[in-house]
């Protein structure tokens, strides 16, 4: 048994995800990162919204909270703010986090509350069978974009940084070892952290956009992802169509629950006088 397997609810497996889905690899990376960060299993809460990715906490042996669509960060903020000593990890999908949950997402970034958020980006709504999401590139196809997507997509990491997240990184299912490392660092960041984890949905996004099998899609991740270090050494022409993976932003800012704690402490010190 691998060390991280103790973090899985083995009696809940096998999972409901399609064969070839990248989410299982990413769940593996999350549990390995929790193990590397040595989080107390009894003091860690995993929260999710609605969608394929949001089913993952059901397989993870922690206090787990499967909430409503887009609202995971609202619930997670309540958990963290009420009991700051708990470790809180949020797992969201791209539609979940950025469309219906977009407002909650930017405000969680802004507050810099110590929550680690992993957004599993498969560019599509999978649970409802393949509608376009805020991460579906313009011109790509989905069941609700039969003539090509009219919408433009977000850059999750740029959005996170601009909104105030203090740790921002991007990884992919293919680069699972690196992803584990990025999530571990995100857990250690004492503020709001976002890791975009690129995943593949061969069932809907892949099929609609003729991207081949799951293996083909993983190979595409291998081809298209460029590390931060490598990206610095190549021309902008060579960067066309590439995706940068690695640590994209780190900063320091006061953490939300700590700021509030300071207010409580100073008020109570005054009362003592």
């Amino acid at each position: 048994m691998s060390a991280y397997e103790k973090y899985l609810r083995n009696n809940r497996l096998p999972h409901i995800l399609c064969s070839g889905c990248g989410h299982g690899i990413i769940m593996g990376a999350i549990t390995r990162a929790i193990e590397k960060a040595d989080l107390d299993q009894d003091r860690t809460v995993v929260v999710s919204g609605i969608g394929c990715s949001s089913r993952l906490p059901g397989y993870m042996d922690f206090d787990t909270l499967h909430t409503t669509h887009g609202r995971a960060l609202g619930f997670a903020t309540g958990v963290k703010f009420a009991k700051p000593e708990l470790n809180v990890i949020v797992i969201m999908g791209d539609g979940d986090a950025l469309a219906i949950g977009g407002n909650h997402f930017i405000h969680a970034c802004r507050r810099n509350i110590n929550i680690t958020t992993i957004i599993l980006n498969n560019n599509v709504y999978g649970m409802t069978s393949g509608q376009f999401s805020p991460m579906t590139p313009q011109g790509h196809f989905a069941t609700t974009a039969p003539y090509g997507n009219v919408d433009r997509n977000f850059d999750i990491c740029e959005l996170s940084r601009a909104a105030g997240a203090t740790y921002v990184a991007r990884g992919s299912a293919y680069h699972a070892v690196m992803l584990t490392d990025l999530i571990t660092k995100a857990i250690f960041n004492p503020g709001f952290s976002v890791v975009e984890a690129i995943s593949q949905c061969p069932t809907y996004y892949g099929r609609k956009n003729k991207q081949g099998t799951a293996v083909d899609m993983l190979n595409a991740q291998k081809e298209n992802c460029v590390t931060v270090a490598a990206s610095a050494k190549i021309t902008s022409d060579q960067m066309q169509g590439k995706i940068i993976i690695g640590e994209l932003h780190k900063s320091e800012a006061p953490e939300y629950t700590a700021v509030y704690r300071n207010i409580v402490d100073s008020l109570q010190a005054k009362e003592m006088k």
Binding site: D63, G74, T77
Partner: peptide
């Protein structure tokens, strides 16, 4: 919406 969500999350911690 988030306020209601936070209230539920907090209640889960007791």
């Amino acid at each position: 919406i988030a306020a209601m969500a936070a209230v539920i999350g907090a209640s889960l911690t007791g």
